[in-house]
Write a protein that binds this DNA or RNA. Structure first.
Length: 507
DNA sequence: GTAGGGTTAG
């Protein structure tokens, strides 16, 4: 592989001279290229001139290597050695970087180890860290964590003093997968021997990984470590940990609040998004008072909550049954100049329904129309379901009529709510009319809805009518639930018993 | 300053 003759000749003749002697360039030779010039000189060539020569030779060698690589990218290490020997100069770090990158690009990574051992044994220059970083990244992509680690700790062999940059690239590689993350502590411990001090950027990588693998509490542990070692904590790390905490389904509200306080003590100043996340956490767990408190703190931190924040708080507060607070929240939102949207109104209407304020709810629908916020199916469903639930059949009927009058097409939820309420009130025939209407509109009633009707029919002695209904539905591939069958069986058995009793009386 | 985050009921 090595052209030993070329090496030998380099020791005998000054490089710069050799270069001009061999150069095939058409540069004006007459002025400089005299081979014997050196002998007649009193002083050797100035150093800067040799350096300049060396650089030029290396450029030529590099070009030769590039040409070779593009025409036939095999035996690149030999090409490297030969090209530089041809121009009688030392291979540059750049040439190694080029070879390694080409090997990776042309799927010849199996040649990388021999290039590295050549670099290790025969060269003198300090290998630039960027070469090692590229290789660590390459191993990372192939999930060869052990190789990445080995390469990193082998840096001194390449006369490279690894900095936090290559440590960070190793950490990023390891942090991509859980099994990599597990060996990070050992790597960090060992990296102390290389005198590398972890920087905030390194911690950011670790925190991001811990959050990715849903371990925000350990990330908070790292924050403590950073504070103890006077390392600045990035706002992004705080925010990321917070949003990861918010995604923890098994995290209790109290513990969440404690962890938030802990982070605040470590210097966390929540931004608008962070507060939004806190409110959403409380909203999802239906913690009305805690959501309200978060809203208050958000405002005292100088952020104006938007409609979505208010809607979430409103919903949580209503769920908790704090209707007075709910009204205050709603009013406050208006005072703040925010315009409630359909979601906000639906939440509010839901609150009215929970207080059985159906008239207010219906009035609200009218006001919504007036201010140009058209009620949607959720608004109607909420109100109708609540009215039905309360047992106010007549009001439900009126409401349904009102809704139909607006040209709203009823959906199956509305039909079913109404049917169930009618059955409860004993209006089975009206219920059957509605059932027929919904089936005609290709809406499929749930099995439990059919069960309500069939049970009611059977309970009122109309067993065969119940059976007819079930058969009719089955014919349309609409299945009743088990309660329908039970009601039918019980109903027929009772009829049979009655018949037996009648007969025995006659006899 | 941005985006994204929010509504029924089973």
């Amino acid at each position: 592989m090595l052209k030993s003759s070329a090496y030998r000749s380099r020791t005998e003749i000054p490089k710069s001279v050799f270069f001009f002697f061999r150069s095939s360039s058409s540069a004006p030779r007459s002025k400089f290229h005299n081979y014997y010039l050196r002998k007649r000189r009193k002083w050797p060539h100035p150093v800067y001139k040799s350096r300049w020569h060396e650089k030029l030779s290396q450029q030529h060698a590099m070009q030769a290597l590039r040409n070779q690589a593009s025409s036939s990218p095999i035996n690149l290490l030999s090409s490297l050695v030969e090209s530089f020997a041809l121009y009688n100069c030392d291979p540059t770090p750049n040439s190694y970087h080029f070879v390694i990158k080409t090997l990776i690009k042309t799927s010849q990574s199996h040649h990388i180890p021999s290039v590295l051992s050549h670099l290790e044994q025969f060269e003198k220059f300090e290998t630039p860290e960027s070469i090692l970083i590229d290789l660590i990244e390459f191993h990372g992509q192939k999930r060869e964590f052990q190789k990445a680690i080995e390469l990193f700790f082998r840096s001194p062999n390449f006369r490279c003093t690894p900095s936090v940059d290559s440590l960070n690239s190793l950490l990023s590689v390891l942090c991509r997968r859980k099994e990599g993350l597990h060996v990070v502590p050992q790597v960090l411990l060992k990296s102390r021997l290389l005198n590398i001090r972890l920087e905030d950027s390194s911690f950011a990588i670790l925190i991001e990984a811990l959050c990715k693998f849903k371990n925000p509490k350990n990330a908070i542990g790292l924050l403590h470590h950073m504070v103890d070692h006077d390392i600045d904590i990035d706002d992004g790390s705080f925010s990321l940990i917070l949003s990861t905490l918010c995604q923890q389904n098994n995290l209790e509200c109290n513990e969440f609040i404690d962890l938030l306080e802990e982070m605040k003590k470590l210097g966390f100043c929540l931004n608008r998004t962070d507060w939004g996340n806190v409110i959403r956490f409380m909203f999802q767990r239906k913690k009305g008072m805690e959501a309200l408190e978060a809203l208050r703190k958000m405002k005292s931190d100088g952020f104006k909550p938007d409609v979505i924040c208010y809607t979430m708080v409103l919903d949580a507060v209503i769920y908790t049954g704090e209707y007075e607070s709910a009204d205050q929240v709603f009013d406050e939102m208006l005072v703040m100049g925010l315009v409630p949207d359909i979601n906000t109104y639906n939440v509010y209407v839901n609150g009215l329904c929970k207080q059985n304020k159906f008239d207010d709810g219906i009035m609200m629908i009218t006001s919504m129309e007036e201010i140009g916020c058209k009620p949607n199916m959720i608004t109607y469903n909420t109100l109708l379901a609540a009215i039905c639930e309360s047992g106010e059949v007549d009001m439900a009927r009126d409401f349904l009529k009102h809704v139909r009058g607006k040209g709203v097409v009823l959906n199956s939820k509305m039909y079913e709510a109404m049917i169930c309420r009618m059955v409860c009130a004993g209006d089975v025939s009206d219920a059957l009319d509605l059932l027929e209407e919904m089936v005609r509109k290709s809406l499929v009633p749930r099995p439990s809805t059919l069960d309500e009707i069939v049970s009611s029919l059977c309970g009122n002695g109309l067993v065969s009518k119940g059976l007819d209904l079930v058969m009719e539905m089955l014919g349309k591939s609409i299945l009743p639930g088990s309660r329908s069958w039970e009601a039918l069986i019980v109903g027929f058995r009772i009829e049979h018993t009655f018949r037996e009793i009648d007969l025995s009386v006659l006899e």
